[in-house]
Simulated scan of single mutants.
Amino acid sequence: MPGMLGSELLHDVHDPEGFVGVSRWRDLDAFRLWEHGEEHRDSTAALRPYRDYQRGRPFAVYRVAGAY
């Protein structure tokens, strides 16, 4: 995907069923362009069965607030 820097699947070391998918993007505009594009739904379809709605929505978008 243009603007995507990489992605990782993180496994919770305290919960064998806990996972988080993280993708890094060049900037928020690149992410939003992909998110609103036609390819978005097809490229994330395999992850839909694993969505966790316990927090109200199955995903979040974060911005870097600081780097050390």
Rank of each mutant, 00 (worst) to 15 (best):
P2K: 15
P2F: 13
G6Q: 10
G6T: 10
G6H: 00
G6M: 07
G6C: 03
S7D: 15
E8L: 08
L9A: 14
H11K: 06
H11M: 01
H11L: 04
H11N: 07
H11S: 04
D12T: 01
V13H: 06
V13E: 09
H14S: 09
H14W: 08
D15Y: 05
D15I: 04
P16R: 10
P16Q: 06
P16K: 09
G18R: 00
G21A: 10
V22Y: 01
V22D: 02
V22S: 03
R24P: 01
R24V: 09
W25Q: 11
R26F: 07
D27S: 11
D27A: 09
L28N: 07
L28S: 10
D29T: 03
D29I: 07
A30S: 15
A30Y: 02
W34C: 04
E35T: 05
E35F: 15
H36Y: 15
E38I: 07
H40G: 01
R41H: 10
D42Y: 11
D42Q: 11
S43E: 11
S43H: 13
S43C: 12
S43M: 09
S43R: 11
T44P: 08
A45N: 09
A46L: 05
A46R: 02
L47Y: 00
P49Q: 04
P49S: 03
Y50Q: 00
R51M: 05
R51T: 04
D52E: 02
Y53Q: 11
Q54N: 07
Q54D: 15
G56R: 10
G56N: 07
G56T: 04
R57L: 12
P58K: 05
P58N: 08
F59L: 13
F59W: 09
V61A: 09
Y62G: 14
R63N: 13
R63K: 15
V64I: 09
G66K: 07
A67L: 13
A67T: 13
A67I: 14
Y68M: 11
